[in-house]
Design a protein around this nucleic acid. Structure first.
Lengths: 201, 201
DNA sequence: AGGCTATGTTGACACTGTCAAGATAAAACG
DNA sequence: CGTTTTATCTTGACAGTGTCAACATAGCCT
C-alpha cells in the first residue's frame, strides 16, 4: 500500500519521513530539521514519527546510514577502476572525497558530525553501515602502501586514520568556511595528494 | 564595582556570563549551554544577557575568542623555542595541537565547529582574534618549508591548509569518537609528523 | 468474530531563544 | 544640587522544540 493518501494509516511513513528529511536536510541544513515539521510535511501528527524512530537522533542516524551506504559504493567504484594507474585513482579519490563533501555539505556534516556520534548515541543500525565504510579506508590504504604510494613502514590502520583525517579536516574547513573557500578546492586536493605521494611534479 | 552581590545591577555580568559559560562548556558540552541557565547561574533574569550579547551566538563567539587567544599564545610558545631543532618543534607542535583538542574537546568543538562559523554568523570580534591565529599557521608552514621539513615547491597557504586540515581532521575524528580512540593519540601524531616530514625513522 | 499489534491521534510538560514594555540605578549634564 | 539621559535588569509573552502518556483506529492472525 504505497499510495494511501488520506487513510488513518499512512502506509509507509518511515520511508516518507526519511525522504522528506533528506530533502529538507540538503536545502535547509540539519539544524532546521524538526520532527514536528517533518510530520507535518508527511501529513501526520507530531508524535507519529515516534512509532518508527526511537527519537530524533535515530531518524538522523537512518539518514546518515543511507549516506554512508551511498558513499561506500562511490568509493568502491573509484577504487576498482582497473584501467587507471593507482596514482591516478588515488588522486581521483582525494578529489572525489572532497568533492562529495563540498557538494553535500549538510549530509557530510550529519554523517561525520558529532550529532549522531557523540555519547555513544550511534545506533547499532548506523554502525553496521558506517564501520565497513571506515574499514574500506584501511583496505585502500594498505593497497596504496603495497603499490608504493604511501610509506610502507607505517601501520595501515594508523596511516589510514591520518590520511582520512586529512581529507576529513580539509572537508570540514571548507564546509564550515574556516580559512578555506571553495574556489581553491582543486589546488588543495592536489596539494594533499602530492604531499602524501611524496612526488613533487 | 566587581563584587556587588545582591544589587539591582550585577556589576560585571558580561564577565560572569563568560566565566560561567566556559565552566559549563567544558563540563556539560556546548549543547547543554542555555542562556537561561547561565542567567540563573549568574543570579539574573532570563533576558539580562541580551544587554551584553546580541544573541546566544555572540556569547559563544566571545568564549571561542578567548580560546583562540589562548591557543595562539600556546602555539607561539612552542614555535619560538630556540633551543630545539625545527624537527623537534614541528613534532611537538603536532602533539600539542592534538593534545589541546583532546584535553578540551568541547572548547575545540566550539572554536572550530560550525556553530559559530556557519552563515557568516561569526562576530567581527571573533574574526579579529581567530584570523591572526589562522595566519600564524601559514607563517609556521613557511618557516618549515624554508627549513626543508615540508616541500618547498608548494604554495605556503595551500600547504598550511592541508597540514592544518590534517591536524584538524584527526582532532575531530578523535573528539567525535569516529574510528579513532584516544589510546592511540601519540602513534597517530607521530604517524602524521613522519608523513609530512618525509622522514621514515 | 475476536483479539493482538502496529500505527496514528490529541493533550500536556518542560524546555528553548528572543522580543516588547516597563522598572531601576548609575552616570552625565545643566 | 536636581534633572535627564543612558545602561542595565525585570516581568510578560510568543513561537518554537523533543518527548511522554493516554487513547483511537485499522489491519492481521487465529
Amino acid at each position: 500500500m504505497a499510495n494511501a493518501v488520506q487513510s488513518y494509516h499512512h502506509g509507509d511513513l518511515r520511508s516518507a519521513l526519511i525522504e522528506a528529511a533528506t530533502a529538507r536536510l540538503s536545502e535547509h541544513g540539519v539544524d532546521s530539521l524538526s520532527l514536528r515539521k517533518l510530520a507535518e510535511d508527511a501529513g501526520v501528527s507530531r508524535t507519529a514519527p515516534y512509532h518508527h524512530f526511537k527519537d530524533k537522533s535515530a531518524l538522523l542516524s537512518a539518514i546518515a546510514a543511507k549516506g554512508f551506504s551511498d558513499w561506500h559504493t562511490a568509493a568502491k567504484r573509484i577504487f576498482d577502476q582497473e584501467n587507471k594507474t593507482p596514482q591516478v585513482r588515488f588522486r581521483e579519490f582525494v578529489h572525489e572525497y572532497i568533492g562529495y563533501a563540498a557538494d553535500n555539505p549538510e549530509m557530510y556534516e550529519l554523517m561525520f558530525g558529532r550529532t549522531i556520534w557523540q555519547n555513544q548515541a550511534a545506533t547499532s543500525d548506523l554502525k553496521e553501515v558506517a564501520f565497513p565504510c571506515f574499514q574500506f579506508q584501511v583496505t585502500m590504504t594498505r593497497y596504496w602502501q603495497e603499490k608504493g604510494l604511501l610509506p610502507n613502514n607505517q601501520d595501515a590502520l594508523r596511516l589510514a586514520q591520518v590520511t582520512w583525517g586529512t581529507l576529513h579536516g580539509i572537508a570540514r574547513l571548507l564546509i564550515d568556511g574556516i580559512y578555506a573557500d571553495s574556489s581553491h578546492i582543486k589546488e588543495m586536493c592536489d596539494c594533499a595528494a602530492d604531499l602524501f605521494m611524496q612526488k613533487q611534479p
